[in-house]
Design a protein around this nucleic acid. Structure first.
Lengths: 223, 223
DNA sequence: CCGGTATCTAAACGCTGTTCAGATTGGAGT
DNA sequence: ACTCCAATCTGAACAGCGTTTAGATACCGG
């Protein structure tokens, strides 16, 4: 565990930490396995006793970060300002947390949100997507989200939030005022929820672009 | 221009074509400049007379595809079914085109939509973002999008559509029925527009998460 | 027909991910 | 306390990568 040891102690975590730092400094691909190993003070081949390849290391970092993000989202829902059990406020807090993270740590966010980098069998807990689903259930339970609009609503909200997050992380859109990010996020969440509610009220008149069986879909892996 | 020539004729385009095919086969990074050169029948160093680096080649491909996408979106707006001048139908057609492209050509879409790969000075025409903005103007002009909600509305719609597109391209979400993609896209557009309209009607009562000067933001580069 | 310039080739550089045979170590069983 | 084993790490090696340089080739304006 100390320096100068032949055995490192916790090389796996140390490599993940080094990789995370390198991603922040130079992006997902701007560094080498050799460099991460050297930074930890170990030979390049040592890494292969903990990760099958460089890609596996990157995936593991992605999963670790995704689980961390899920926990962060869950906590920020609890810490939502105002009446603590206002489900809409909670969802806005979730959205703010998601989006502000992607802006504050864009390089890591780019890596994680791209999600092709998570192993199919990985059991991330709590998964950000599950946290979002739980909040929508809470919203529906409180009557704020009419039942006919509940089905598949997570994909509408998720798409909107995820879109904003990746647009910011990729630098495709920029806000002059950092506070404007929160406002825009809140607007996206409110707009989406309002739209979903209105869709339900219109549903009787004409069928919306939605039906029970055509919307069956499966989440796959990432954030 | 023919085979066996010492001078290729249009090596630049040929390299872009080869890169595009390789991206489809093995993703953005699953191929080498050397391989693209070999496929075109040219030595690796020949590429450097047309592109400063491998990265420059990839960026050029991204820009070429982005311009192609802009043209496609514009055309699909015109070809919108139903009353041709129904601005909402046009926007739905745009959304469908954007999203279905990202699903039909996911590898190239991943490359293009991550947008960090477009040069800052590139003049892409027509830029997808500009096509979207034009359609929202049309919508506002027809009175379908109330004026107070118009400002910054493109970022709400863009975020929702872009989010859905990247979720599909990255495989983070999958639809069993291909037709469900269109339905979900239409739902996202409708929901967003409904929400924006409702936001405007509520705006008098309580201020929405939006204000004129905090929303000033600047587009940067990609799609 | 000539000369210049754009285009392409061949060889080389340092670096990469990855593999493999062998050295080192901590810990479990006696 | 000692032994042995499995886990861990090293060092050297491999092919392939992006990129650079010096030089060959071929098109085009005069």
């Amino acid at each position: 565990m100390a320096k100068g040891r032949y055995h490192h102690g916790d090389l796996r975590s140390a490599l993940l930490d080094a990789a995370e730092a390198l991603v922040r400094e130079r992006g997902t691909d701007g560094w080498s396995l050799r460099e991460a190993s050297a930074r930890v003070g170990v030979s390049p081949s040592a890494a292969y006793h903990h990760f099958a390849s460089r890609d596996t290391l990157v995936r593991a970092l992605s999963e670790r970060t995704l689980a961390w993000l899920g926990e962060r989202l869950r906590q920020d829902c609890e810490r939502a300002p105002g009446r603590q059990d206002d489900p809409q406020r909670r969802l806005i807090a979730l959205g703010r947390s998601y989006v502000s993270w992607s802006l504050d740590d864009p390089a890591v966010a780019r890596l994680v949100l791209r999600g092709g980098a998570t192993a199919p069998d990985s059991a991330i807990s709590p998964h950000p997507h599950d946290v979002l689903t739980a909040e929508l259930d809470r919203l529906a339970g409180a009557g704020a989200l009419p039942e006919p609009a509940r089905e598949g609503a997570e994909f509408v909200v998720w798409a909107a939030l995820h879109g904003l997050a990746v647009l910011l992380a990729d630098g495709l859109v920029r806000f002059d005022d950092p506070h404007a990010v929160d406002l825009q996020t809140e607007r996206v969440v409110r707009t989406t929820l309002n739209g979903l509610a209105q869709e339900a009220s219109h549903a009787a008149g004409r069928p919306a672009g939605r039906s029970a069986h055509t919307e069956r879909l499966a989440r796959r892996s990432g954030g």
